[in-house]
Nucleic acid binder design. Structure first.
Length: 412
DNA sequence: TCTGGGGTCCTAGGACCC
DNA sequence: TCTGGGGTCCTAGGACCC
């Protein structure tokens, strides 16, 4: 009676997602080079997504925006509209969930679907994939690329094989052969550094990598990376996605248009970042005892300091004070700062019990008040209760957009 | 060309305990 | 008394991904 099904995974990738949403929402942008990430003149911006038309100019994700403007001065440059992309993303995830009870959302623009045993409902994999594509096109006007395989890892790589608007099936038993056909840099998990190290070790192709023993790879790259490489090139089902993270973190960071050196500006920045992190902590009903501070200096060198305490972070002021303390411990005065980040790690559920005496009454009260304000804000978007200092800073940020940057310079 | 923001996982060393 | 080994927690930095 009970058939044992062969596992089938789909990996679905939305093509040039942010740019495609813009092209769908604004028909006049269609078949034109669209670059999402910023508008010409935006300092320190990078390309988030380039439409396929823009890619013909050599523009790609993570490229400095100024470079993209040089490559394609006539392009359509847009700041990203995350709220809109997120909305469309969820709409598409809803469609996925009609095709399988098991959908693993990997990010805003990709997901795995466990399609094992769904053949009776949706037909063989190719047919099911075509149905999914049709549904998405009809309801959102977007295209996706789909990879189909018996393991998540191979499905993931297969979805990138034919883009955009493609379907790639790797048949059962052909996983290893498929992996061996790929250039090393197409293997998910091998980045720039690992590629360099592979080359230095005389490994230039997937086939050469495949010839190496697990022991040798572990000796060359460490236990974990060695095992990963060994499994990857075999299309092993041991590489799994969608497991719960062991150490969750929440963070907010910002690159400033001009380097910060002024104490007041720096503290205002911490205030702002602390507020964002606490807001999310409240929203997710989570808690943390570990604060992480990040500083990126003008020369791009990046350092972090973190400190765990017995007492969880409870409110914005609390987090702000911890930030100031960590900052004074780490900051190499008077260097210019291009980025500041505030985060919490070892995030746990706020309902897990904590020793009562660790929660002194004062900060607990503050936390409750703050959470009430956050809840109110969430219910009524137009209501914004913010600290006076942050109101002042958002005003001056607006002025900064309009004025010339000169008052930030040496003579400012 | 001059480098975003949000994450996860790994490594290595030190502290501390048994 | 001159020195073991394992476990856990913490910190800083790095690699990688979307």
């Amino acid at each position: 009676m009970n058939r044992i099904y062969e596992p089938v995974f789909f990996h679905i990738d939305l093509d040039a997602f942010f740019a495609s949403v813009e092209q769908h929402d604004h028909p006049e942008y269609r078949s034109k080079p669209v670059i999402v990430g910023g508008i010409p003149g935006d300092r320190r911006a990078v390309v988030s997504t380039a439409s396929y038309e823009a890619r013909k100019y050599g523009i790609h994700s993570a490229m400095p925006l100024s470079r993209a403007v040089e490559l394609c001065p006539g392009g359509i440059f847009l700041r990203s509209n995350h709220r809109r992309y997120s909305e469309v993303s969820h709409q598409i995830m809803e469609i996925f969930s009609e095709f399988s009870p098991s959908v693993i959302r990997m990010s805003i623009d990709e997901a795995f679907i466990d399609a094992t045993g769904t053949e009776r409902l949706f037909g063989p994999p190719l047919e099911a994939a075509q149905k999914i594509k049709r549904r998405i096109r009809e309801e959102t006007g977007l295209t996706v690329s789909i990879g189909i395989a018996g393991t998540m890892y191979v499905a993931k790589i297969a979805s990138g094989y034919k883009k955009p608007d493609g379907i790639t099936i790797v048949p059962k038993g052909a996983e290893e052969e498929f992996m061996l056909s790929l250039p090393l840099e197409k293997i998910w998990g091998i980045g720039e550094k690992t590629l360099d190290r592979l080359k230095k070790a005389g490994i230039f192709t997937a086939k050469e990598l495949h010839e190496k023993s697990l022991n040798l790879l572990a000796a060359l790259f460490g236990e974990s990376t060695g095992r990963f490489l060994y499994n990857a090139v075999r299309g092993s089902k041991e590489i799994v996605f969608g497991e719960e993270a062991k150490n969750r973190s929440i963070s907010a960071e910002r690159t400033y248009r001009f380097d910060l050196t002024d104490r007041y500006d720096i503290e205002t920045a911490f205030m702002e970042l602390s507020e964002q992190v606490i807001w999310r902590l409240h929203k997710e009903n989570a808690r943390s005892r570990t604060v992480v501070l990040k500083i990126r200096y003008d020369d791009f060198r990046t350092v972090t300091v973190q400190e765990s305490s017995d007492v969880p972070v409870t409110n914005t002021d609390d987090l702000f004070e911890r930030c100031k303390q960590l900052f004074s411990k780490k900051y190499e005065s008077p260097r210019g700062i291009r980025l500041l980040g505030v985060g919490v790690s070892n995030v746990e559920d706020a309902d897990t019990p904590v020793q009562a005496e660790l929660f002194e009454s004062g900060s607990a009260k503050k936390a409750r008040l703050e959470k009430a304000i956050f809840d109110m804000e969430r219910k009524n978007q137009s209501l914004k209760i913010r600290k006076a200092r942050l109101l002042a800073s958002s005003r001056s940020a607006t002025e900064e957009e309009q004025n010339s940057p000169s008052h930030h310079g040496l003579n400012g």
